[in-house]
Design a protein around this nucleic acid. Structure first.
Length: 146
DNA sequence: CAACGTGTTCCAG
DNA sequence: CTGGAACACGTTG
């Protein structure tokens, strides 16, 4: 049975929908319905854990290009960043597609799209607010590659 | 089926 | 450093 809840991250709310260990949706929103979320979220957002295990994103299932991209992004270690091009190479596709996939990423955080940055050292983008990406990377103690 | 839009990149000026 | 073409793929007409 599908459950829904929310928790806070700065001025934003994190809306979460999940079923068992499979997370179907994680979105940053202004306002969200009240409700508990798995402890992994509150701990992660507090910087107390670096993993969501045993939770997994529903987006990585399947064998489409997008699922390969989400899987590749999920492999990026905590605190590290990769470029759109590197993710594209890992998923055997084009950087442009990676950007498109990230923009439609249904499960933020679990699929750490905030760790995907532009090749020129820029941050790239983030929906709904780039500031969230900055805050997340800052929290993880952003270091270039390693 | 053709055209467009992307959280990009890379190669010329 | 700025400008433009190309790339793969989903969405839209």
């Amino acid at each position: 049975m599908m459950k829904t809840g929310s928790c806070s991250f700065g001025m934003w709310k994190v809306l979460v929908s999940w079923e068992g260990n499979v997370v179907h949706q994680v979105q940053f929103v202004r306002t969200a319905p009240e409700g508990l979320v798995p402890v992994q979220f509150t701990k992660f957002l507090a910087g107390r854990v670096d993993s969501f295990a045993p939770l997994v994103s529903a987006a990585v299932s399947g064998d489409s290009v997008y699922s390969r991209i989400y899987a590749a992004v999920s492999d990026i270690p905590y605190g590290e960043t990769r470029t759109y091009g590197e993710v594209a190479f890992a998923a055997d596709t084009h950087p442009r597609v990676v950007g498109n996939a990230m923009a439609r990423n249904p499960t933020a955080l679990i699929v750490p799209c905030h760790r995907v940055t532009a090749a020129d050292g820029g941050l790239g983008g983030f929906t709904p607010d780039l500031q969230i990406k900055r805050d997340l990377l800052k929290m993880e103690g952003k270091r270039r590659r390693g």
